[in-house]
């Protein structure tokens, strides 16, 4: 469990530099050096006067269980949002009218965001879950031999998530 700095909130009071026992808070990037940070130490988190430092967990609980009928209706909305994104994309690709293309981009973007949120509520809220691991394995077995599938990256991802 390491500390991280929210750069939007950090007012450079530097108390974290004074209190950090390893120098992890003092870096040229502005972010904390996660490798130097002591697991669960949280001295800087408690000392920061602007509340700009927080802890990033290394373990997470399983996502909340979902009722099958909730999942079924959420999946069906995801499918519909993806179909809307596809239609907006196709209309955009088939047109050279800048105003129409702009409207299509808005629909594509918004539909994607709504679909992502529906996926989040359907058990895919974090990458470190059984559901995500099962998903990645299924992707490898279904699409792993297709041209362009980033197989090595996905396999490395799976080993990093387990």
């Amino acid at each position: 469990m390491h500390a991280a700095r929210n750069l939007r909130l950090c007012t450079k009071d530097c108390v974290c530099l004074f209190i950090c026992p390893t120098g992890a808070t003092n870096t040229e990037t502005g972010q904390i050096d996660f490798d130097k940070c002591l697991d669960g130490c949280r001295l800087c988190v408690d000392a920061c006067p602007s509340g700009a430092i927080y802890l990033v967990s290394s373990t997470y609980p399983a996502p909340q269980p979902k009722h099958p009928s909730v999942l079924e209706t959420l999946y069906s909305l995801v499918r519909s949002k993806a179909a809307q994104e596809d239609v907006a994309h196709s209309v955009k690709e088939g047109s050279d009218d800048a105003a129409l293309r702009q409207i299509c981009t808005v629909v594509e973007t918004s539909s994607r965001i709504i679909a992502e949120d529906l996926w989040r509520e359907s058990g895919y809220i974090i990458a470190q879950s059984e559901a995500t691991r099962a998903l990645l394995k299924a992707m490898i077995s279904e699409h792993g031999t297709m041209e362009g599938f980033p197989r090595t990256e996905v396999e490395e991802l799976l080993s990093r998530l387990s």
Partner: peptide
């Protein structure tokens, strides 16, 4: 009841992946 990859459209799969991309970004 996990979602079935075989029954998803390409764009559903893409949205599932960008969602998890965002989840990872939030954890840095």
């Amino acid at each position: 009841m996990d979602a079935d990859v075989r029954q998803m459209t390409w764009t559903e799969l893409a949205a599932l992946c960008t969602n998890l991309e965002k989840a990872c970004t939030k954890q840095l």
